[in-house]
């Protein structure tokens, strides 16, 4: 695999070209977020499982790692 060794420097060059771990734009301001809570709840109301009591009782897991 001697031929592949020559490519290791190229690999480093490529690594530098990779987009840096740029986070997404700044978070919405807290005030906007609070205003949005009602919207959020309306949306969540539409997708929540219908029988909360039964669902929560039925969600039984075995322990894992």
């Amino acid at each position: 695999m001697a031929g592949q060794e020559q490519k290791s420097s190229q690999s480093r060059d490529e690594a530098e070209d990779v987009e840096p771990g740029t986070p997404a734009p700044a978070a919405p301001q807290a005030s906007e977020a609070t205003e949005g809570v009602d919207d959020l709840l309306d949306e969540i109301d539409g997708v929540l499982e219908s029988n909360a009591e039964e669902f929560v009782r039925g969600f039984v897991q075995k322990g894992g790692q």
Partner: peptide
């Protein structure tokens, strides 16, 4: 990570 009833998984 939990069922809220005593079981946890990682």
């Amino acid at each position: 990570n939990t069922d809220g009833k005593g079981a946890s998984y990682g």
